[in-house]
Amino acid sequence: MLDLKLLDRDLVMLNIEADTQKEALEKLAQRLCEKGYVKDTYAQAILEREKVFPTGLPTEGHGVAIPHTDVEHVNKPAIALGILQKPIKFNLMGDVDPNNQVDVRILFMLAIKEPHMQLKLLQDIMEIIQDGVLLEKMVQAKSVDELVEATEQYAREKEGVA
């Protein structure tokens, strides 16, 4: 079920050191930019959008955020996955109260080019974040290989059930 084709291993960052939301978002956005997936304008657009339309999502375990922005800042679709060294507060998606925050350890930064193409991917992410055990494995992973293996194992188990 899990389509990891858009998850380039070069776009997985473990142990991101950041004290602020801005720092964390910039580090991940910069990686997308270095690899040519997004334009120079992407990082700034991500920061601005996160302020107006926050993307923090509460989960059973580690908080998750799915920062993303408008298509014009994107060259080709991708997803960058970042694990933060320590939790950073994000405002909750769809919540008008800025006091409602979630401690985020996992960032799925989306570079979206066309809506329907990425529907499956977004749905997969939503499924992943409902699995507290997998989120814990992702946060504990010592290497990119270990993290990818955890998601692949999860995908295999899901397929086995289905």
């Binding site: 799915i66 993303h68 922005t69 408008d70 298509v71 066309e114 809506p115 749905q123």
Partner: peptide, 12 residues
């Protein structure tokens, strides 16, 4: 916010 990301999941 963007009209293409989470609204697509909501749409579906």
């Amino acid at each position: 916010g963007t009209g293409i990301a989470t609204s697509t999941v909501a749409h579906d």
